[in-house]
Design a protein around this nucleic acid. Structure first.
Lengths: 282, 282
DNA sequence: GCTTGACTCTCAAGCCACTCGAGACTCTAT
DNA sequence: ATAGAGTCTCGAGTGGCTTGAGAGTCAAGC
């Protein structure tokens, strides 16, 4: 029987954490002295604690761990998770580097503070059909995964009936998690066409309305110059008296090619309408 | 002038976040309508916001960012941070993989649940001198950095007067951050010797007391079997009626060698005293 | 038996960077 | 006039703990 301090040393877990786990009913001491309230632990309890720590390190929340333990999860299942986790980490590293590239781009924008923005062009875009899939993706990696599937499967299936790859950001939360994205291809296919990806996601054709006035900017790189483009766009809108009218579209004029290292070329299209700039009372 | 929603789209930052930044006084709208309370932003404000986001992505807290901005930090300084941050990420990846290896080890311990623990040996250890440095390190990477310095500099300086590399974990917080570690070498040097590392840290010689009863376990790998060793130790202590008496020492009988891929061999030494196991009233 | 100091207890609050919801306005298009 | 989208404030919630106050407990040494 160990008091909490000694047990903490054996388990290599802070005392406060042991108490916390007891409080939330995740890991109870073997006994609690009814008079003093002192917690007493035994070495035999270590495996359960270790199981908890493993699952935690694998990214589960404490609630999920409680669930898993009461379901008597097997070591093999945990092994599977370990493999999964490894993949996730590699993915996370990739995302992290992506983010750094974005930071670099932002830094460039800051340096360009004085200089002109990127050129904004007004267009009008006709109605078109859009073979697309809309989903709220938990992370960037998932988004890219599905995108990869689409690129593998769809051109083969529909060939020349597909136009540019296009994405629409519906949600307004710009963190990289839980993004509500619609992506797919411009197309000539009938409105009732639909197709299924290997991951069982279904793409359907829908009508994309015509837009009379569309402000557009071009961007090189999938993410790198994103903020710069939107920034220039904003500046232009302000100076020329326009406002947003609808969801923006990102049209991939050229897809990124990891093999040759060729960057993507993206046209950002934002539906706008002329409107005197908002002027709050002074 | 943009209302918060439009500005949010331009800046690619959620509305809630813009409001939050205004609340904490980090990034204010250009104007606030005194009657309606509506926030109005201008495109010119983007650079400041971007600066904030860059610094945030570089790992600064919002408080630090406020500080940095009021100090008018230069882009060059930020560039330096970017480079630093890149290094940090690489380091973080390394740590992450380290952690995974630890998870794997813990998993092995779970599987060994039924089997015997590692063998525990009782020894007595004489008083000895210890050329060491004690510090609270913010992260594992820093610890390893300083360790690297020591290994580069000290053997050259003191040669055969150095014994085993030894570490003592003083704090009781076992997360990998802010660890209070003392590390150095057993030595014959005089008690008033001290030496300075390239990073300006100072090591001094101090007397390490003799320990009559020291429970020891051996471990292969710098971290991999840590929890397993301590676990076995705990089990043994419980069964044989001993308790912790002082800070544990980790003696590196063999240093890890990244070149040959040779793992470390570590002897964990824990001062103990015989004492009847604690028995709470039932 | 008493003191000292280390250890332990509970309970509440704090941390970070936000997010979410309720309830009340405000704006714009029809 | 009205609907619907956007905005406001304010308070609470998030996760996984840590920190601190104030009180009680334990073991060793005198």
């Amino acid at each position: 029987m160990f008091k909490i301090g000694d047990f903490s040393k054996i388990a290599q877990v802070p005392v406060s954490q042991l108490r916390y786990y007891a409080d939330i009913g995740l890991f109870q001491p073997d006994q609690i002295d009814p008079f003093t309230g002192y917690r007493y632990y035994r070495a035999e309890q270590l495996p359960r604690l270790n199981r908890i720590l493993v699952l935690k390190d694998l990214g589960m929340t404490l609630d999920q761990i409680r669930q898993a333990l009461s379901d008597n999860i097997s070591t093999n299942e945990v092994r599977g998770m370990l493999r999964l986790r490894k993949a996730k980490i590699e993915q996370a590293v990739e995302e992290e580097l992506q983010r750094l590239r974005a930071v670099e781009a932002r830094l460039r924008q800051i340096e360009d503070e004085t200089s002109e923005g990127i050129e904004v062009v007004l267009k009008s875009v006709p109605a078109q059909r859009f073979l697309s899939l809309r989903e709220t993706f938990p992370g960037m990696g998932d988004t890219l995964g599905v995108l990869g599937e689409m690129l593998q499967v769809l051109p083969e299936r529909f060939g020349p009936k597909l136009g540019y790859m296009t994405a629409m950001l519906h949600g307004a939360s710009f963190n990289l998690e839980n993004v509500d994205i619609e992506m797919g291809f411009a197309t000539d296919l009938d409105t009732d066409t639909s197709t299924r990806l290997p991951s069982d996601r279904v793409l359907a054709v829908r009508e994309l309305p015509a837009v009379e006035t569309m402000a557009t900017v071009a961007r090189v790189g999938s993410f790198e110059n994103n903020c710069r483009s939107y920034g220039s766009l904003g500046l232009w809108l302000e100076q020329n008296g326009y406002t947003f009218a609808d969801t923006a579209r990102e049209v991939f004029l050229q897809l990124p090619c990891p093999d040759t290292g060729a960057d993507a070329v993206v046209e950002i299209q934002v539906p706008v309408i002329a409107r005197p700039a908002v002027q709050p009372p002074n």
